[in-house]
Design a protein around this nucleic acid. Sequence first.
DNA 1: CTTGTTGTTGTACGATCGTTCAACAAGCCT
DNA 2: AGGCTTGTTGAACGATCGTACAACAACAAG
Lengths: 228, 228
Amino acid sequence: MARAAPKPRFARQPPEVRRQALIAATIECLKRYGHEGLSIRTISAQAGVSVGLINHHFPNKDELVAAAYRHINSELIAGMQAAVAAAGSSPRARLRAFLESWFSAPSLDADALAVWVVFWGLYRHSRLIQRAHRETYQGYVSLLRGILAELLPTERAAHGGRGRRVRAAVPAVDLRLAAIGLTALLDGLWLEWCLEPGTFRPAEAIELCEAWLAQLTRRNGSRGGQRP
Amino acid sequence: MARAAPKPRFARQPPEVRRQALIAATIECLKRYGHEGLSIRTISAQAGVSVGLINHHFPNKDELVAAAYRHINSELIAGMQAAVAAAGSSPRARLRAFLESWFSAPSLDADALAVWVVFWGLYRHSRLIQRAHRETYQGYVSLLRGILAELLPTERAAHGGRGRRVRAAVPAVDLRLAAIGLTALLDGLWLEWCLEPGTFRPAEAIELCEAWLAQLTRRNGSRGGQRP
DNA sequence: CTTGTTGTTGTACGATCGTTCAACAAGCCT
DNA sequence: AGGCTTGTTGAACGATCGTACAACAACAAG
């Protein structure tokens, strides 16, 4: 009974576990306090560790922030890829899964927007953020392009192989502009919803995107190839 | 000859002139250095004044930043309003003027995006920024809504002669969703272009927006009122 | 030229920032 | 039980932050 309390003052963690905890704390601080939350002391307090520990697992603050950015990015893209992969092989179903993944949590979250905005503000002046972006963004681009390519049939002519029985030799839809427009619509709707969640429902956003794509294919049939 | 050099060490300015100069310096620092440029010393150096002067013309830093935000906002909106007003009375011409104003300098500028992004990051945690936003944003909303309102009925009438009679009683297009979608497209395209100006030309962005609006009116004629 | 007003300067202060580092101790090994 | 590795602590440092304030000086008025 007079035994000294063996209660440890802290618990040692494997480096990778601690790294992930610090990354999670960084994101949480960003959600809560915005750019001002990006301080060593705020983050370490959130993670329940001392100030010195961060520099033991990360060479400096910028590397931690870049790691957090990379984590958010890859998490989100992996979620969308999984949703699309689970949707089967139907192009329309895959598009639907993609859109539903885009317009639902954790992507569609006002807090998440606050986090993104801070990262965007850092993008221009932090090479580490730029690198993290480049390394993860490619996955998103190829995912979206794959969905669009299999959705807009004539584009397969350019790829050869699969689409053997292509009717028109001329590409009906400008795939490039289609991707640009869809991306803009996705980003813009996502932005709008996060800023003011009450103005429209996620289902309406999906509807708008599908209407946009439907217009592209219909345009093909009626007056395609009109581009200057 | 031996006269002491009467060169003044500084020049006094009327308060309003100095205020505007400090606001301009703030924006310039934001363009150059992002969020890190938002320091009293950086801004005062950019403006060519001493550190103490800012607090003589602004009660604190946050007020200066909010004033800069208000300035950018009203400047941009006033530019668009002027462009639309100068376009005459034709709804299509007014839309065209609006889009051209949107997708051209000084709105369409990668540096400007960097500035906006910093402000967005501050928005959630600064009441002053929120107030500045609320006071200026209303002008934009009413401008866009006016353009859409005068455009959609007319568009409908123009297409109405194509075999189907125009019915003014039932709103042909969901004006609310139209505004949401157009805003998303505008924001998204603007964002995309600022991030990677090489991917498409401003004229193509305008084309995409007009195609979007054309789709809305066409949709009305073919299968309108299908909304759940 | 003298005076008064006030825009302007620049130092100073306390707070907070990111980072360093010597000391500590938790947990595994023998 | 004792040694060893190493994750962890927390004080300390210099730099920089926003702000306050007393002294200065530009310029108009008399």
